[in-house]
Simulated assay, not measured.
Amino acid sequence: MQPSLSHHEALIYVMVMMSAVDREMSDDEFARIGRLVQFLPVFDGFDEDSLVHIGHECSAQLAAPEGLDIMLEIVREALPEKFHETAYALAVEIAAADQRIRNEEIRLLQLLRDRLGLDKLTCAAIERGALARFRR
């Protein structure tokens, strides 16, 4: 098992997992990860130069046998409870970045919600907010 991640790394892992779940990491999704890391207060103090390295680390671990399940557990262990909703919100942001939510992304959101112990009403509110932000 991997050593414990910082909350910054765990949140980035969530975004990379969401981006990679459909086996395509689009430029829009990767650009959104970079922008979120640059301006969200939860990433204050994070060294942005390590973003690409963390993304590659996460991708490599996802490719391993049972990678997704292991990664979800690593994220759960690394994130303090106060960041569980933040992790879900970041996953929704990445899923919505390309204006299409695929079945794989919906399934990962369900897995993340269950692993982090989030209630459906809270998750629905987060999802509704993202829909409102990305509406054209």
Results as ranks from 00 to 15, higher is better:
His84Leu: 03
Phe83Gln: 15
Gly45Ser: 07
Asp119Tyr: 06
Asp69Gly: 15
Leu68Gln: 13
Phe83Asp: 10
Leu72Trp: 11
Gln38His: 02
Pro80His: 06
Asp47Gln: 06
Asp69Met: 04
Glu9Pro: 01
Ser6Lys: 05
Arg136Asn: 11
Ile126Trp: 02
Ser4Lys: 05
Ile106Lys: 07
Ile106Ser: 09
Leu40Lys: 08
Asp119Asn: 15
Leu51Phe: 01
Met15Val: 11
Pro65Met: 08
Asp49Val: 00
Leu68Trp: 01
Glu9Asp: 13
Asp22Tyr: 03
Leu131His: 09
Gly45Asp: 06
Arg133Ile: 14
Leu118Cys: 01
Leu68Gly: 12
Leu131Thr: 11
Ala20Tyr: 04
Leu72Gln: 10
Gln38Thr: 06
Leu62Gln: 07
Arg135Trp: 05
Leu72Lys: 10
Ala64Phe: 08
Glu24Val: 10
Val37Glu: 01
Arg32Tyr: 02
Gly67Ile: 11
Arg32Trp: 02
Asp114Val: 11
Phe43Pro: 08
Val92Leu: 07
Ala89Trp: 12
Ile12Glu: 01
Phe46Ala: 00
Met25Tyr: 05
Leu116Gln: 06
His53Pro: 02
Asp119Gly: 05
Glu85Phe: 05
Leu118His: 04
Asp27Arg: 10
Glu105Ser: 01
Met1Trp: 07
Asp22Val: 03
Glu93Arg: 06
Met25His: 02
Ala63Tyr: 04
Ala89Tyr: 14
Val75Leu: 12
Glu93Pro: 00
Ile94Tyr: 09
Glu73Val: 06
Arg133His: 07
Asp49Ile: 00
Ser50Asp: 11
Gly129Ala: 03
Gly117Ile: 03
Leu5Glu: 13
Met15Ala: 10
Leu72Cys: 06
Leu5Gly: 10
Ala97Leu: 05
Phe46Gln: 00
Ala124His: 08
Glu93Phe: 04
Arg102Pro: 02
Met15Ser: 12
Val14Ile: 14
Asn103Trp: 04
Glu9Lys: 07
Met17Arg: 09
Asp69Ala: 14
Pro65Tyr: 08
Ile33Met: 01
Leu36Ala: 03
Leu131Ala: 13
Val42Gln: 01
Arg100Gly: 00
Thr122Met: 10
Glu73Ser: 08
Ser19Asn: 05
Gln61Gly: 07
Ser50His: 12
Ala97Ile: 07
Ile74Tyr: 14
Ser19Ala: 12
Val52Ala: 14
Tyr88Pro: 06
His53Asn: 09
Arg76Asn: 08
Asp49Asn: 09
Ala96Gln: 04
Cys123Ile: 00
Asp119Phe: 07
Ser4Pro: 03
His53Thr: 14
Asp27Val: 00
Tyr88Arg: 02
Leu90Tyr: 01
His84Phe: 15
Leu118Lys: 04
Ala96Asp: 04
Glu105Asp: 05
Asp119Gln: 12
Arg35Met: 05
